[in-house]
């Protein structure tokens, strides 16, 4: 394992080189467009973060039952959950998003009564499709992880809870679920970053996230390098933030035993 310190001669030189590179980029390149678009970039950044957070929360809530029924549920439900995971993990998320948006979206107008329902105003927007696609994708990947986590909780702990007369739901709430979540926590940070990397796909179905706004900037200014570098930097910062937050969280929580 490399040591986590900067105080080594070669690392200091690398940091210096990086700093020189960043400064060259900052002063030699054309950043005049940045102030003009800054408010739009921040708005779009919010969309990206909102989609990320909401799809992760909703996806995780879905992933818990999906993982659980594969370990303990009745056969048909377990089979259904397994097929769902295979389907999500076996096809590209871009295609899933397009199936929902272009595929289902093109069928909705022909469904009787749907146009008059309260759902219709949402169905003609793009973001619900983006949200659903991201949520289902996260649920599929995380459901598989949760299956392993539920399975990995030592049987003795569940049997002990059973033996002192705990209700099955109490066991799930007080022992099984917390122990499973504790097991997935170390990998969750990585999963969140993967999900972050999936969010720019929503730009392909006309949701204006960070990626989309930089696409517009590139089209309007004809600048080649700077917007792309800025975009990469924004994702680096977001991913770094997630990684940092999870490192803090892991230090706060008791180690798993």
């Amino acid at each position: 394992m490399p040591e986590q310190t900067l105080m080594k001669p070669h690392r200091l030189i690398m940091v210096l080189v990086a700093a020189v590179l960043v400064l060259t980029f900052a002063f030699m390149m054309d950043w005049a467009w940045l102030p003009k678009y800054s408010s739009e970039i921040f708005d779009a950044l919010w969309i990206t973060i909102a989609l990320l957070v909401s799809s992760i929360v909703a996806g995780f809530l879905l992933a818990v039952p999906i993982g659980l029924v594969q370990v303990t549920g009745p056969r048909p439900l377990a089979w259904l959950a397994m097929s769902f995971c295979t389907l999500i993990r076996g096809t590209p998320i871009l295609l899933q998003m397009w199936v929902l948006y272009y595929g289902l979206g093109s069928l909705f107008p022909y469904m009787p009564g749907l146009r008059q329902s309260w759902l219709w105003p949402y169905l003609i927007e793009a973001w619900p499709y983006a949200f659903v696609a991201l949520t289902l994708s996260f649920a599929g990947y995380e459901g598989e992880v949760m299956r392993g986590a539920f399975k990995g909780v030592p049987r003795g702990e569940l049997e002990a809870a059973h033996a002192i007369g705990m209700h099955p739901f109490t066991i799930l709430r007080r022992i099984w679920l917390p122990r499973a979540v504790q097991r997935v926590l170390p990998t969750l940070g990585g999963e969140l970053i993967l999900q972050l990397k999936a969010t720019p796909l929503v730009a392909t179905i006309a949701v204006v996230d960070v990626y989309a706004i930089f696409g517009r900037i590139r089209q309007e200014t004809f600048i080649i390098y700077e917007p792309l570098l800025m975009l990469a930097l924004i994702y680096l910062i977001l991913a770094g933030g997630i990684a940092f937050a999870f490192r803090l969280l892991e230090n706060k929580l008791p180690a798993r035993g």
């Binding site: 720019p200 796909l201 792309l228 975009l231 990469a232 680096l236 977001l238």
Partner: peptide, 14 residues
Amino acid sequence: AIPELVLILLAYFA
């Protein structure tokens, strides 16, 4: 950390 989609743009345009 950087989405593949951004890397593709970098490889294709920059």
